[in-house]
Design a protein around this nucleic acid. Sequence first.
DNA 1: ACATTACTGTGTCCGGCAGACACAGTTACT
DNA 2: AGTAACTGTGTCTGCCGGACACAGTAATGT
Lengths: 229, 229
Amino acid sequence: MTELLWGKEPARTRGPKPAITLTAIAEVAIAIADAEGLDAVSMQRVAGELPVTKMALYRYVPGKTELVAVMSDLAMGGPPDRPDLPWREALHTWAIDLYDGFTRHPWLLQSTIGRRLLGPNELAWIERGVAALTGTGLSGGEQLDSILVITSHVRNIAQQSTTFPGHTTGLTEEDMQQSLAEILATEADRFPHLTTAMRTSAGSENQGLEFGLARILDGLELLISGRTG
Amino acid sequence: MTELLWGKEPARTRGPKPAITLTAIAEVAIAIADAEGLDAVSMQRVAGELPVTKMALYRYVPGKTELVAVMSDLAMGGPPDRPDLPWREALHTWAIDLYDGFTRHPWLLQSTIGRRLLGPNELAWIERGVAALTGTGLSGGEQLDSILVITSHVRNIAQQSTTFPGHTTGLTEEDMQQSLAEILATEADRFPHLTTAMRTSAGSENQGLEFGLARILDGLELLISGRTG
DNA sequence: ACATTACTGTGTCCGGCAGACACAGTTACT
DNA sequence: AGTAACTGTGTCTGCCGGACACAGTAATGT
C-alpha cells in the first residue's frame, strides 16, 4: 500500500507487458469522480474506459480502497509554489490554496477522511503548512494542531459551499434554505435565537471561509505574540 | 421527508395496524451502527432484528437515505441542559457536549455531512450555540459562522481520535504513526519542517480539541471585545 | 532450441446491496 | 355486505466488490 502511494515500481521481470499503468487507472478514476462524483467510480466503470476488463485492475491495485487512496493523492497534487511570507500571510494563502483544491475535486472531501495512510502530496501540504509556522516559538505539536484547525475549517466550508455531482440527496442550497425557513416559520418559538439570527444574516453569504480563518489566525497570533514577547 | 424528521403522524384511517413504528426502526438501526458501524446498517440487517421483512420497512421510510436521516437526528439528541454562563464558557461546554455526542455515536460524523434537511435535534444544537452568542454584538451571520467554525473543529478532532467500528481501513493509530515514521525516516529531506515538528511533539497527544478551541475562542473574544468596546 | 517460470488479462461465480412491483391479507368506512 | 385503503411478503432486476481458475505471453535457465 505504501509502495503504491509512493510510486515504488516493483522492478518487472518476466511475463507479458502490462497493458496499462497505475496512473492511467487513477486518471480515469479521477475524471469519473470529477464528472459524476466518487460514488460513480466503480471497478466496472473505470475498466470500461480502459482497454481492459474489471478484473485486470486487480493486477494493479489490491482493491477499491487502495485505488481511492491513489487517485486521491494524485488529484490533490502538491501545494502551489508561493513566495516566502510572514507566517500569517503564508498560512492564509495556504488555506485558500487548499480550499481551491477541494473545490476543484469536491470528492476529495469524502475520500480523505478518517485514519488513512498518507501519500506524498498530502504530506507535502502538511510540510508546507508546518513550514509557515517554524520560528514562531510554537512547539511541534502546536504547529501540527494549528494547521489541523485550519484544515478542518477549510474542509467544512468547502463541504457546505460545494455542490456535489453525485451521491448527495440532490438538494440545492435553495431547498435547504426554504425548508429551514418553513420550519422556523411554524416553530419559531422553539428556536427564538436562531430565528432572529437568520433574520439579521440576510445578505451575508459565503463569507464563512474568511470569517473563520480570520478568527483562527487571530487566535494564533495572540498565542504566538505571547510566546515570543 | 420533513414530516418524517419532525414526527408528523399521517393520521391513520383504514387498513391493518402497522406492526412496528418508525422510531423502533430507527432505534434498531442506531444499535447496529453503534456496534458495527454505519456501513453495517442495511435494510436487510435492520429488518432482521424486527418482526418484519426488508420490504416492509419501505412502508415506513421512502429509502435508505431517509432512514439514515431519521436515525441520525434521533441519535444526536438535543443539547444537554446547562446553566447560563458567559458566552465563552457557554460555547466551551457546548463544544465539549458536542464532542461527547460524536464519540458516543461516531457514525454521526459520516451521516451528518453535506447538504441535508435538518431535524429538530440538530436545529436545537444550533439554537443553543447561537443563544450563547446573543448580546455579544455579533451579527446573525457572524453568530452562525462562529458556531460553524467550532463545529468543524469538534467534528474533525472527533474524527481523528475516534476509532470506527466498521468501514475504515482497519488502521490503528499506531499503524499510521509507524507508517509516517518510516516515511519520514527515508524521505526526511523532502519534509524537513515536518520531521522536526514531529520530533518536538512527542508526548503531546490528544490536546488538539482544547488547543484549537482555545484559539478559536480567543479569536472570537478579540472580535467581540472590539465590537462592544 | 526448448522447457520452465513468472506474470498478465479474462470469464465465471458468489454474496450482498437498494429498490420496483405485483399480490394477498386486514381493517374501517359506506 | 361490499368496497376502499392500508400493511406485509416474495420475487425480480441491476448494481457492487471481489475470489478463483484458466489461458496466453515473455523472459529465463538448461
